[in-house]
Design a protein around this nucleic acid. Structure first.
Lengths: 140, 140
DNA sequence: GTATTTATTGCGAATGCTTTGCATAAGCAA
DNA sequence: TTGCTTATGCAAAGCATTCGCAATAAATAC
C-alpha cells in the first residue's frame, strides 16, 4: 500500500487508521476502529476516525458496508470480494462469495449503462442452529 | 392481501400504513411513509410508523432495504424481486434484477446450511450522465 | 350492547451513530 | 524556519430510531 496522499496530508492519525484497517482485515465498525486506535494513540478522537473513513471512502480505498444493523462497517477495498449472510435470529454472520457475481455485474452494466464500482450482497435467513419458527405464519 | 392479524390487533393506523406501502409500490423511507400517513390521519405518530414497520418486518410482509444512505427504506415483500444500483455522483437509482440470483441463493444455501429468506443486492457506480472523474486517482 | 382485558397509540424524552463548528495543532512548501 | 492551510480534539448538534408511560381503543367475554 502506498503511503502518500495527494492534496491531503499524511497525518499520524491517518496512517494509524489505515494500518488498523489493513491489519484487522474485515468489517470493523467505526467504534471498533476507534478503540483499537486509542490503544496506540490515546488522544485520537472519534471524529477523526469518521472524517478519515469518509476520506478513504471517497478515495475508494475502503468500502463501507451496510448490513443488518443500523451502523456501518468498513473494510479495505482490495480485500478479496465477499458478501454477507446474517442469521435473523442469532445474528451470526456467514461470509460467502459467488462465481456468479462477475457475470451479474457485467449484465447489469450492459443494461444500465452505469460503470459499476462496487457490489454488495446481503442475504438474511436462519442459520442451522436457529430453525425458522413455523407457527409464526402471518396472515394480515 | 389478507386483512387480519393473529395475536395482534388490526388498528386503523396499521391498516393505513399497509395501504400506503402497498399503493406506493417501492422503497419509501419511514419519514416518507409518515408524511403520507399524516395526510390521511393527521394524528398518527412517527413512533407508530416505526413500531408497525418493525412488526411487518417480523411478519415478513415488508422488506427493509439498506442502500447507500444511512436510513432505511421499506417495500412490500411480495413485490417482484429487484435490486438497486445507485449512482455515486448524482444519486440516481436504477432497479434491476438478475436471472442469476436464484442459483446464487441456492448455492449459498447449500454451502452455508442457512435457510435464506431474503436477498439484497446493492451496486454502486457512475451513471451514464456522471462519468467517473479520472484524475481523482488516489495514491495513499 | 356493555364491560373487561390488554395491545396499541401519541407524546416527549432518550439513545446511538455520525457530523459539524471552532480554536488549536501540525503537515508541507518555500 | 516561516507561513499557509489542512487536520485534529473537543463539545455540541443532527438525524434516525427506540422507549416509557398514561391514555385510547381493539377484541373478547358476558
Amino acid at each position: 500500500m502506498a503511503t502518500e496522499l495527494i492534496g491531503q496530508r499524511m497525518t499520524s492519525q491517518r496512517k494509524l487508521l489505515l494500518e488498523i484497517i489493513r491489519d484487522a482485515g474485515g468489517h470493523l465498525d467505526a467504534d471498533e476502529l476507534f478503540q483499537k486506535a486509542k490503544g496506540r494513540d490515546p488522544r485520537i478522537s472519534l471524529s477523526t476516525i469518521y472524517r478519515n473513513l469518509n476520506l478513504l471512502k471517497e478515495l475508494d480505498l475502503v468500502a463501507e458496508r451496510h448490513f443488518v444493523e443500523d451502523h456501518h462497517h468498513y473494510e479495505l477495498k482490495d480485500t478479496a470480494e465477499h458478501h454477507h449472510l446474517v442469521c435473523r435470529s442469532c445474528g451470526e454472520v456467514f461470509e460467502f462469495n459467488s462465481p456468479l457475481t462477475p457475470k451479474m455485474t457485467k449484465d447489469v452494466e450492459e443494461t444500465s449503462q452505469f460503470q459499476i464500482t462496487d457490489i454488495e450482497i446481503n442475504m438474511q435467513g436462519y442459520c442451522p442452529n436457529c430453525p425458522r419458527d413455523m407457527h409464526q405464519e402471518s396472515s394480515i
